[in-house]
């Protein structure tokens, strides 16, 4: 079984992102970039399936600029076998990314595609579902458990009321939630070894698809800030404030 894992280069989750001074977009100058955390979970799950003998090859792919090679190498260090960079000019929207990934899936023919449920930059939560629709494949989003049973993937999903388990025919698209696994840290020997693994580059403009932007960002602003609150010295004072000042309890 071959597994394809699409990943994304995003601002590190510890970075506090701010708008540019002209509010035209977010300020990404000199900020630390990382593999999107949900994508790391996807890579980890694929590598575990390989380690347990259920998968034979793990291929990571990203759509982005040359700088995204750094994140592909990080995924190779986590245990992926080879990498593909679909090189684009500028950042693409999820619809366009899904179109590029559709082409990659058609040429790679994986039995399973695992990707993060959302990227922590745009928080869109779209790419996996769009890819599944374009390929007319079944999907299992927000996975917290994944089991391969014959020609099916049995997936437990995190939904608003609790958990839901579904069974999807392979090939299928799975998107990861936080509790699917805890990704490992890459060891130094694996980081060194990753430098020798195959990383091929394809140009998105050669794929013959429309990847133009469908939306425009008019402005990016800080959210309204909350008025500074007060510190209380005791539970008694807190209850008094909640009853008489905020009037939220009686």
């Amino acid at each position: 079984m071959k597994i394809l894992v699409p990943v994304k280069r995003v601002v590190d989750y510890n970075v506090k992102v701010r708008p540019l001074s002209d509010n035209s977009n977010v300020d990404l100058n000199n900020v630390k970039m990382s593999v999107n955390p949900f994508c790391e979970i996807a890579v980890e799950e694929a590598v575990r399936l390989k380690e347990s003998g259920q998968a034979t090859e793990v291929v990571v792919v990203t759509v982005g600029g040359d700088e995204s090679q750094e994140q592909l190498r990080a995924c190779l260090a986590l245990g992926a076998d080879r990498a593909i960079l679909a090189q684009s000019e500028g950042l693409l929207e999820p619809l366009a990314i899904a179109k590029v990934l559709t082409k990659i899936v058609e040429s790679e023919n994986p039995n399973l595609v695992i990707l993060g449920k959302q990227a922590i930059d745009g928080d869109n939560n779209q790419t996996g579902q769009m890819l599944a629709a374009m390929l007319d494949m079944p999907q299992a989003t927000f996975a917290s458990e994944l089991k391969i049973e014959g020609d099916n993937a049995v997936v437990t999903r995190e939904i608003d009321g609790g958990l839901q388990t579904i069974s999807v025919n392979l090939p299928a698209i799975v998107t990861t939630d936080l509790r699917l696994n805890e990704p490992r840290y890459a060891s130094l020997p694996n980081i060194m070894q990753a430098k020798k693994k195959d990383l091929s580059v394809q140009n998105v403009s050669d794929l013959g698809i429309d990847v133009s932007d469908r939306t425009s960002i008019l402005s990016v602003e800080l959210p309204p800030t909350r008025e500074a609150g007060v510190m209380v010295d005791s539970v008694e004072e807190l209850v008094e404030k909640l009853k008489n000042e905020a009037k939220v309890i009686t």
Partner: peptide
């Protein structure tokens, strides 16, 4: 819509 975990609010125009 909020982006970056609500650190910023983007005003987005759809051209579709």
């Amino acid at each position: 819509r909020p982006i970056y975990a609500g650190s910023c609010i983007a005003t987005v125009k759809s051209n579709d």
